[in-house]
Nucleic acid binder design. Sequence first.
DNA 1: ACCTGAACACCGTTCAAGT
DNA 2: ACCTGAACACCGTTCAAGT
Lengths: 224, 224
Amino acid sequence: MANERLTRQTVAECALRLADSEGLEAVTIRRLAQELGVSPMAPYWHFKNKDELLLGMTDHALAPLPPIGEATDGWQRQLRGMIETVIGIMREHPSLAALLQNIDAKKAASFARATNDTLELLARAGLGLQESYWVAMQLLQGITGLIATRPEHHASVTPEQAAESRRQARLTMEALSPCEYPMVVAYARTLEEEPDPERYYAFGVDLIMGGIEAIAARYGTASP
Amino acid sequence: MANERLTRQTVAECALRLADSEGLEAVTIRRLAQELGVSPMAPYWHFKNKDELLLGMTDHALAPLPPIGEATDGWQRQLRGMIETVIGIMREHPSLAALLQNIDAKKAASFARATNDTLELLARAGLGLQESYWVAMQLLQGITGLIATRPEHHASVTPEQAAESRRQARLTMEALSPCEYPMVVAYARTLEEEPDPERYYAFGVDLIMGGIEAIAARYGTASP
DNA sequence: ACCTGAACACCGTTCAAGT
DNA sequence: ACCTGAACACCGTTCAAGT
């Protein structure tokens, strides 16, 4: 719209907004340029290729993630807080999960920072470096999976879109043979009623934290 | 090569082999046709579009997954066995993880079967239908993440390729500022020596199972 | 420094046509 | 029933050129 000069910031921001509202597959260099009211090649001055752009979008989304605070709490509480914050950011940016799966995440500075903080917490849990890294990656995958399976699926902002995608999921599963897949068909029926997102996310966090605490008790050397 | 008649089977098989050896992004309708020695439009007779092809590839890869056996063991042992089997299949088919992230998995019959079996096991663990489904999806995501982060990264078949991709990962992380990201840089150095894949996967399975057992103890109604 | 325009080598997919 | 060929509307990216 505005005919201002472009910035790395504004380009990344616009691309992220586009991804959040229409899905990551809508983010095309040409479509982005159109959205910015600029020629198709303009974005290339700010990002040398599409991968760099995706990294920029990720950094822009993850920027508000606060650094890990002082060690006043136990590592469990701090880690749980961090997980909840990331979930919050992913709920604000529905495309972030897909983004993290389509880039080499360790090349994003904001992601490296989050990883570093997580490694620090897990060291306090008594885990070794390798184990900590493996746990940190599983952690991210867990959060991503939580978002991907979420009841308010897709880049759907409006309740109507959310209800529609839930209906689609239900129809897909109900189309299956009830004698071959009885449990799946039974689950599909639970999708008829509106889900409670908060209950869903709380359960997900418990699931992720449960795995980490079990592994810390087994492989770690620190006291709880 | 051979000028035989095409089959849905052979097309899916060829596409999967291509994906496993050169990555999912190499699987293009046109490239696939070339590989089959056939005109670019030929695959369309067997799969109505690319999404259907990806589903077919997934079903082909997941076909050898055995159905859940009789309930002679406890649900924990059976579930652990299933996870290990899926990991085995994913290690044989390096593209399967990416495949599952790029399709609507519930539309793949083989995936629905695996989901159904998992739901049955989790019901025996005393979890409700919704909770079971959430756990099942987290389970898959966890396995997928395990494969994605694995030491023998990428579609690398040869040890040289594996060593090279590990080296690339190390260089990316070592390029980071050591005072800003001390833990990440420290972890990068552990990548210098050859990893032990079995130790890695065993740890991963413990991590995933730990979460499930913790949640079963907390939300379930069955005795262990 | 920042952006445009034309061009290249790719995509997925439709549709009419061949055997 | 199974496959081909031409055509369409897209991609990402390079490169020379404009201001």
